[in-house]
């Protein structure tokens, strides 16, 4: 042990694998933020127009930052939920179904109980969170009690969820037009709509859960080595089920913000959340193998994904390129975060 450290050059010790993995996502985000304005500058330069780098950029502006933030908030909630699961070394693919069900039930309850936040309809918000928790709980139960690998259990539950949402709506869209509820999007403080601050608050709560509660530490314990955690007396099954329940609550939060953003709840509300949130978590630097990463990584990851989406539109690339780019990005991120010496084979 001592021999090895003695032989390592100081420089190599400074640039350790862990350190690179830890800071790479943030670096990528910064590079991206500087890269898109550069393309804009390049375009104007070719047409010999006046263009001061960054200052004249359409991408690098408060207005666009708010746009990116708005697009990020629902995805951030969903991605935070799945972060806890991935820290445990499991995965949750049920978010599309859960988000749809929560959004639809919220909208029905909200309209049925008065249709404005000043009436009893505000109860629809806790109801939606409860529904998310219940769905997550069932998900965890199926995974743990029936001993089905989490990716399959949650994928199947996701299908059930989407089907259930379709059953509830019959394919219709439900409009939520309460001004007070829509103020999530319409009222802005310091250029950013309220929903961004709500998301920030939820992020802080998630950070608190992750770093200051027993449950949060147990997630890391399970992800770091399940057998060890079990041997040291931890009730791993319970931690897992609680993790999935917590994730469900965050999915419901994502559903609420998604409805707040668009003003419509439908079966398709949950579409695309699966791929975007998994991509965001993995790109942010939370390892699929568990035990590493956290909610701040997820924030960086969500921003990377949304900066790419937004930047591509700004520099005029067609939207269909995004899916492919994100697909390759997620592969690259998993490859970079995998320590090949410790992995024997994957399925």
């Amino acid at each position: 042990m001592t021999d090895i450290t003695a032989q390592t050059a100081p420089r190599a010790r400074w640039l350790t694998r862990e350190r690179i993995i830890k800071w790479a996502p943030l670096l990528v985000l910064i590079v991206l933020v500087l890269l898109f304005p550069f393309f804009e500058w390049l375009e104007d330069f070719r047409e010999s127009k006046e263009h001061l780098y960054l200052a004249d950029s359409r991408f690098f502006s408060i207005r666009n930052a708010a746009r990116i933030a708005i697009a990020s908030t629902p995805a951030l909630m969903v991605a935070i939920g799945v972060t806890f699961i991935i820290i445990m070394g499991s995965i949750d693919l049920s978010m599309e179904g859960t988000v749809s069900v929560c959004a639809v039930i919220f909208a029905f309850a909200f309209i049925g109980w008065g249709g404005t936040l000043t009436s009893w309809a505000w109860l629809a918000i806790p109801l939606a969170l409860l529904v998310g928790a219940v769905l997550g709980f069932i998900n965890g139960l199926v995974h743990v009690r029936l001993k089905i690998p989490s990716f399959m259990a949650s994928l199947a539950m996701g299908f059930v969820g989407t089907g259930f949402a379709l059953l509830l709506t019959g394919g219709d869209r439900i409009r939520v037009e309460d001004d007070l509820f829509r103020s999530l999007l319409t009222v802005r403080w310091f250029n950013f709509p309220i929903m961004c601050y709500v998301a920030l608050a939820m992020l802080l709560i998630a950070w608190f859960i992750q770093s200051r509660t027993t449950l949060g530490r147990n997630f890391y314990a399970v992800g770091g080595g399940e057998e060890l955690a079990h041997a040291s007396g931890l009730n791993v099954s319970r931690v897992r089920i609680m993790g999935f329940t917590l994730a469900g609550i965050f999915f419901a939060m994502g559903a609420l913000l998604a409805v707040g953003r668009i003003g419509i709840a439908e079966t398709a509300t949950g579409n695309n959340f699966m791929f975007i949130s998994i991509t965001a978590v993995v790109v942010g630097g939370t390892a699929l193998w568990g035990g590493i990463g956290g909610v701040w990584n997820t924030l960086v990851g969500v921003l990377i994904v949304n900066v790419i989406n937004n930047g591509m539109v700004v520099i005029g690339l067609p939207s269909y390129v995004q899916d492919g780019v994100l697909g390759l990005l997620v592969i690259a991120a998993v490859v970079l975060s995998t320590d090949r010496k410790t992995v024997s084979f994957v399925k």
Partner: peptide
């Protein structure tokens, strides 16, 4: 290849490649 040589679990690699295919289809 991504699954075996790059150690990416197949549910992630195939999901990601699915989106690459979707991109191509949309294009």
């Amino acid at each position: 290849f991504v699954t075996t040589r790059l150690y990416v679990p197949s549910f992630v690699s195939t999901l990601a490649m699915g989106f690459v295919a979707l991109s191509a289809a949309k294009y």
